[in-house]
Design a protein around this nucleic acid. Structure first.
Length: 836
RNA sequence: GCGGGUGUGGCGGAAUGGUAGACGCCGGGGACUUAAAAUCCCCUGUCCUCUGGACGUGUGGGUUCGAGUCCCACCACCCGCACCA
């Protein structure tokens, strides 16, 4: 080791080993210290850690190390979201077993994480693909079944007839399977569902208690749950049937000029004419992509049936309409064109009346519409007994009257659907049920768990290997003992990630978790991950936790007390046209100059594109291993925290990481410098103590970029200071303050400077409150609201003294130029503003 | 279409209604060196008649002694949802 340079290639590994040996990062549940559970969303073991993971885990790591230094017993675990499709794809493409592929990937990624020096409790590592994990998941699934929260029903799926598999919506591109390219069919299959809708109200209300979640995420979940309150009532139809409809605007009932049903509504289906059948087919063909919906024209088909208005007795035409959805409300609506844009468009197209029933005031009852529907507030007009009422009062009145007639009732409708968890795949948790011809669907006995996946499977033939495995599915019925078959569906991987944070608290062999350990560690104080999980993962995990609480297995209801969603790591792109095609080049193929970028291969200039999310197709990716090998783990960690606020995107740049590498060496040189000297340095001491407080606040607020800026400032101040006892103290303090961010450098420097033990186990420095108080302050002097001069005054100087000093300033006098002073505003210790 | 967010130097970004641009990157100049790397020092919003001054936080208004910050309207970009009655 050279004296003048810090060498991460030897130091990083040395300290990682030292932390391992000292077991610094083990969480002790017997500890009396206050606990802190810091968790980052666990990764899918794709094989390589990418730079986004590095940013995510560095943030959590800084917080975890800081919490440990401030006297907390920290739980900071790591695991693997190890089931899922990519493993099966690899099996099909490369002929490797999903299990072997996954476990190899885990080993690689674990080694990568260790090279970054994360303060993780590896003794609690888990992988969801191991029976020790998913066996307990099967047990929990059976518990949920017992509690009435699991059921089976027929449901429509996207079926790929070539791959013989069910596709997620995202895997259907232009109506074709993403892998096979075959036309996707809609098939009805019996599938397993979790009754998340039972918890809709709770999940919605619970959002209110999650003050430390981003408003954005709470809003997204609120919209997803989609509570709406309105009225369900029935029309009498001319064919003698009754047609229930749902409306959130019952107040506008006198404005209804037609009734519309969905194409797959029974009323539509019962029509016996070719024209009707053709129209229904036309509706079904309609695409569901964003662009198609945007331009979709409102289309309708007059059924010839009429509906009797419950108050006026008028006969309203019943249409089949392509914009009415079967799976929301009752699949039928009363259409009020004047006050709903869709109904307005439809009525305009088909020449139906557009009556006004809400107006700004009673005098505007006949005000014409301005080419669009008015859905706002106002008073009711042209509405018989509702005339003159406000919207809210009118809603209540209509509901009251229809309830009285026994024709309808107030009703709450949710957008949230039950959670379909069946996947017709191999690499997932087997659903613990058995199908018996005589007993039906029977839960697997708990003592038969875990139901493990067979190892001897092949992926050469399409379809689910569990279905065609020669022996696996054949079992005796646990009820009657006769021949029966196992369920061959496996669970959605979102189930795996719905409780892993509970399993981290303790890992008993005979049960999913230990009640007391959950009580000790949960909730997670700080959960960090990507915004892409704002809805599904976070909603499912909240549901699963509440369901367990509902069954009395745990106390905690909300698993994540505080949530942080970090931004992406981005990079500019490099490309040029070659033979009419845009060819992208990777950053390491480029030599980047100030204004331009040249290809290393042939020296040709390439175009520098926008800074965008790193993606393989644009080749704008950097590999964590490479950069760690080049700059060391600490420089990379420091870069991840610098400059950009953590919730925003972070543009990766070669120049930036080099700057971080320089800073690592700057700190190193401070420690190498002479650390003794005479006398004190009050300014530096003040700066040091202010920095202790500020960095602590910044880390707790996750404002790592601000903490970084303050550490640069302190470093600069130490460099400028003459040797002194205060300079020595400042240097030791700096080592501790940077240690959560640059732990290897901090250990090496600490060790070299003669510090005791490991800095990873050191306490956060104490600050002296007296050092935070200035005795002199800078006062800004303004005239006409503009800065004219600044002056130095003793802290706490009187208003009169400050006024006097301000007026004495030559610059101020020049600006005043003899004008009459009308008023002087003095903000003590801050500013004087002279008004003329 | 609905909902949400963001807009500050060449770039990333600081700034309890009180000195806009902290800190970093890039760039320029200098020192050290035979030379380079490394390191150190200085400069670095725009403009002008430059020991000073004017302008300046997407645009236009407003509130205020004082607005990047608060209010109103608009523009641009980004994200989420999407015919949810």
């Amino acid at each position: 080791m050279s004296d003048t340079r810090f060498d991460p290639s030897t130091a990083d590994g040395r300290w990682q080993k030292a932390w391992d040996e000292a077991q610094c990062f083990r969480a002790d549940s017997k500890s009396a210290k206050p606990k802190s559970y810091v968790l980052e969303m666990f990764p899918y073991p794709s094989g390589r850690i990418h730079i986004g993971h590095v940013r995510n885990y560095t943030m959590g790591d800084v917080l975890a190390r800081y919490k440990r230094m401030t006297g907390h017993e920290v739980l900071h675990p790591m695991g693997w979201d190890a089931f899922g499709m990519p493993a099966e794809n690899a099996a099909m493409e490369k002929g490797v077993h999903p299990g072997g592929w996954t476990r190899d990937n885990i080993a690689n990624m674990k080694a990568q994480l260790k090279r970054i020096g994360f303060a993780l409790d590896w003794s609690r590592e888990l992988a969801t693909c191991e029976p020790e994990y998913y066996g307990h998941e099967q047990g929990l699934f059976l518990d949920l079944y017992e509690a009435g929260l699991v059921y089976r029903k027929e449901s429509e799926v996207n079926w790929d007839p070539v791959d013989m598999t069910v596709l997620a919506n995202e895997q259907v591109i232009d109506g074709k399977g993403w892998r096979s390219g075959a036309e996707v069919e809609k098939r009805k299959l019996a599938q397993w569902f979790l009754k998340i809708t039972d918890f809709a109200e709770e999940l919605l209300d619970g959002l209110g208690s999650l003050e430390n979640w981003p408003d954005k995420v709470r809003l997204m979940q609120e919209n997803w749950i989609g509570k709406s309150q309105g009225l369900e009532f029935s029309f009498d139809l001319s064919n003698g049937e009754r047609l229930p409809v749902y409306s959130t605007r019952p107040d506008t009932i006198f404005g209804a000029s037609f009734v519309a049903v969905a194409a797959d509504h029974p009323v539509a289906q019962s029509l016996d004419s070719d024209a009707a059948r053709d129209f229904i087919a036309l509706c079904k063909r309609g695409g569901t992509t964003a662009a198609e919906l945007e331009t979709a024209e409102k289309l309708g088909f007059d059924t010839g049936i009429t509906a009797k208005h419950p108050f006026t007795g008028a006969d309203l035409p019943v249409y089949i309409a392509n914009f009415v959805l079967m799976d929301y409300g009752t699949g039928a609506i009363m259409a009020v064109p004047g006050h709903d844009q869709r109904d307005f468009d439809f009525a305009t197209k088909y020449g139906l009346p557009i009556p006004r029933v809400v107006a700004p005031s009673a005098a505007d009852a006949d005000k014409p519409f301005d080419a669009e529907a008015e859905s706002g507030e106002g008073v009711l007009v042209n509405s018989d007994f509702l005339d003159g009422m406000e919207v809210e009062a009118a809603k209540a009145e209509v509901i009251r009257r229809l309830e009285e007639q026994g024709r309808g009732q107030g009703k709450t409708v949710w957008r949230l659907r039950d959670w379909g968890v069946s996947r017709q795949r191999y690499w997932g948790t087997p659903i613990p049920f058995i199908h018996c011809e005589s007993c039906g669907v029977v839960p697997a006995p708990k003592d038969s768990l875990p139901i493990t996946l067979p190892e001897d499977v092949d992926f050469k033939t399409p379809g689910n290997p569990l279905v065609r495995h020669p022996t696996w599915k054949h079992v005796d019925c646990p009820k009657c003992g006769g021949k029966a078959e196992r369920e061959t569906d496996t669970l959605d991987t979102f189930v795996d990630s719905s409780w892993y944070f509970l399993r981290f608290a303790s890992q008993p062999a005979d049960k999913p978790f230990d009640r007391e350990e959950i009580a000790k560690w949960l909730p997670v104080e700080q959960y960090i991950g990507g915004i892409e999980h704002a809805i599904l993962h976070l909603l499912y995990a909240r549901f699963w936790t509440r369901a367990l609480a509902h069954m009395g297995q745990i106390e905690v209801k909300e698993p994540f007390a505080s949530l942080f969603t970090q931004g992406m790591v981005t990079h500019e792109t490099y490309s040029r046209l070659e033979g009419g095609k845009t060819v992208y080049y990777a950053p390491d193929e480029i030599s980047r100059e100030a204004e331009r970028a040249l290809l290393k291969d042939d020296g040709g200039e390439v175009e520098i594109g926008r800074v965008i999310k790193m993606s393989k197709s644009k080749k704008n990716v950097v590999d964590p291993d490479t950069i760690i090998a080049t700059y060391g783990a600490d420089a990379v960690r420091w870069f991840m925290l610098s400059d950009s606020p953590p919730e925003r995107d972070l543009p990766w740049s070669e120049a930036g990481i080099e700057g971080c590498g320089r800073f690592v060496q700057r700190v190193w040189r401070l420690v190498s410098a002479e650390m003794v000297g005479d006398g004190g340095d009050l300014d530096l001491r003040r700066k040091t103590h202010k920095t202790i407080v500020a960095v602590a606040q910044d880390i707790e607020a996750l404002s790592f970029n601000k903490a970084v800026a303050r550490l640069y400032e302190l470093t600069g101040a130490i460099e400028k200071a003459q040797p002194s006892a205060d300079r020595r103290d400042a240097t030791f303090t700096l080592m501790k303050l940077v240690s959560p961010m640059m732990p290897h450098l901090a250990e090496e420097a600490w060790h070299r400077a003669g510090g005791e033990g490991l800095i990873a186990e050191a306490a956060w420095p104490e600050h002296d409150p007296a050092m935070l108080v200035e005795d002199e302050v800078t006062i800004a002097v303004q005239h006409k609201g503009k800065l004219r001069d600044t002056l130095t005054a003793p802290k706490g100087a009187s208003k009169e003294a400050l006024e006097e000093m301000a007026l004495a300033s030559e610059k101020v006098q020049r600006s005043l130029d003899g004008a009459e002073v009308r008023k002087i505003i003095v903000v003590p210790d801050r500013l004087v503003n002279i008004v003329t």
